[in-house]
């Protein structure tokens, strides 16, 4: 474990807790894309298939349970909670899951480290995580206004993966044969997708004005 990875995990943890707290306290999911949340639940499910078979550390297992639990409870809140669901904007959140899931699945079948079920599922989760934020970014552009909690949520999500890139660079130089080029490429693509959001987020923060994404 290195400081970059710990900071990345904490940032990621904080992002999902911020979202869960927002939905739980104000009982609203305005501006949140259910599609993205469902994709994240799928990412964690396919990534943590080994949660009960391979024990890495208590930290690893606890964090996996938190990510699985929080992502599924966010989906439950938006889908089932009688108050929260009323604030879900399903007419705007229309991104088709399968536009992302199917290409990632096909790519994982053809480009992976090893052609086993677990490995393909793990690779699929990496590709899917890279693009899972798209429905949320599309929704933010459509609704044009971003309440600052949602802005912080997306910012923290992007920051976590950027910290992981620093972690991969650090591990590449400190650990022999630490090579996971698929992880690295997926991670860089994911961070680049956030880049334009970061740009507008910093612009609005610097000019101290409301965050507006260009149409």
């Amino acid at each position: 474990m290195n400081i970059f990875r710990l900071a990345g995990d904490m940032t990621h943890l904080f992002s999902v807790l911020v979202l869960l707290l927002k939905i739980h306290t104000i009982k609203s999911c305005a501006g949140i894309s259910l599609k993205t949340q469902e994709l994240y639940a799928l990412v964690f499910t396919t990534r943590y298939l080994d949660i009960f078979t391979d024990f890495i550390s208590l930290y690893n297992t606890v964090m996996k349970l938190i990510f699985l639990g929080s992502s599924f409870s966010i989906v439950w809140y938006i889908r089932r909670h009688k108050i929260v669901r009323r604030s879900y904007d399903k007419d705007q959140d229309t991104f088709r899951h399968y536009f992302l899931v199917i290409p990632c699945l096909v790519l994982a079948v053809f480009i992976n480290h090893k052609f086993t079920f677990k490995e393909v599922m793990w690779t699929f989760s990496l590709y899917l995580e890279a693009v899972a934020i798209l429905p949320q970014l599309v929704l933010l552009q459509r609704t044009r206004n971003i309440d600052n909690l949602t802005g912080q949520y997306v910012f923290l999500l992007g920051a976590y993966r950027a910290l992981y890139i620093l972690n991969w660079i650090y591990r590449h130089f400190t650990e022999p044969h630490y090579v996971h080029w698929i992880t690295w490429i997926a991670g860089v693509v994911q961070t680049l997708l956030y880049a334009d959001f970061f740009y507008y987020y910093f612009q609005s923060w610097k000019n101290n004005e409301k965050l507006q994404l260009p149409a």
């Binding site: 080994d50 793990w122 972690n167």
Partner: peptide, 10 residues
């Protein structure tokens, strides 16, 4: 032999 690369990252 192909060492099982442990997925120790989240």
């Amino acid at each position: 032999e192909e060492q099982e690369d442990i997925k120790d990252e989240l």
